[in-house]
């Protein structure tokens, strides 16, 4: 319930009229949105119980490793609710397969559709979504870890919350099933990072400073 309360309201995409190239325009709008989502994510992370008790080095490491996974949980959740085959980055930024292909995000589209299908089949609840997002961050396998015991306690607290929630619903296999989706989330996030780095390096798509700093940390 604490995570549900601290979940930020979804952002809307800002329009961009700096270019006539429609594919480039979509990418500029998307990168601007992701940059603002990152800002929110960092503020949100500080409110996860146990996060602020970690050393600053570990807070940075977890965010640098797990930020894209946490953001994609949100995209997958919004897309799952939308029903169609579009990726819902924001209420006013839904990209279909053709748009993703035209913008160089075909690989990301395919990976995210797989993840969305999996979440949709599981009929995730809002409680599960926010816990999964926090767990993706806590479980980001940052290396090296400054204080392994604190990070472990942070993970244990979230795991316990998930188990308590699922046992209150009398779903004994549910926590395990959710944890088993984390490898696909990791794999999807890696493909997303590669796609944005490729767009920046090879197609010179300008990327905001914070987003670029976080992509560089993954490169």
């Amino acid at each position: 319930s604490h995570l549900l309360l601290t979940e930020p309201a979804p952002l809307a995409a800002n329009q961009d009229d700096s270019t006539n190239d429609s594919s480039l325009r979509i990418l500029l709008i998307l990168c601007d949105l992701l940059n603002r989502e990152l800002l929110l994510l960092i503020g949100w992370a500080k409110q996860i119980p146990g996060f602020s008790g970690l050393s600053l080095v570990d807070q940075m490491s977890l965010l640098q490793s797990g930020w894209m996974e946490a953001l994609l949980v949100g995209v997958a959740w919004r897309s799952q609710g939308a029903g169609g085959d579009e990726l819902v980055f924001a209420g006013n930024l839904c990209l279909d397969e053709a748009q993703c292909r035209a913008t160089g995000l075909a690989d990301l589209y395919e990976a995210l559709r797989h993840l969305i299908a999996k979440y949709r089949a599981m009929k995730l609840s809002p409680e599960e979504v926010v816990t999964l997002k926090a767990m993706a961050l806590a479980n980001s396998d940052a290396d090296p870890v400054d204080c392994p015991d604190s990070v472990q306690r942070f993970q244990d607290g979230l795991h316990e919350a998930l188990q308590d929630y699922e046992s209150s619903r009398r779903e004994q296999h549910r926590a395990g099933r959710l944890l088993m989706t984390l490898p696909l989330l990791r794999q999807t996030a890696d493909r997303a990072v590669q796609a944005f780095l490729r767009l920046h390096r090879h197609r010179h798509v300008p990327i905001h400073k914070l987003l670029l700093e976080m992509l560089d940390a993954k490169a």
Binding site: L39, M60, L63, Q64, L210, E213
Partner: peptide, 14 residues
């Protein structure tokens, strides 16, 4: 932290 100064600053802001 020099390479990741925006993240560092955001985490230190209360």
């Amino acid at each position: 932290t020099e390479r990741h100064k925006i993240l560092h600053r955001l985490l230190q802001d209360s």
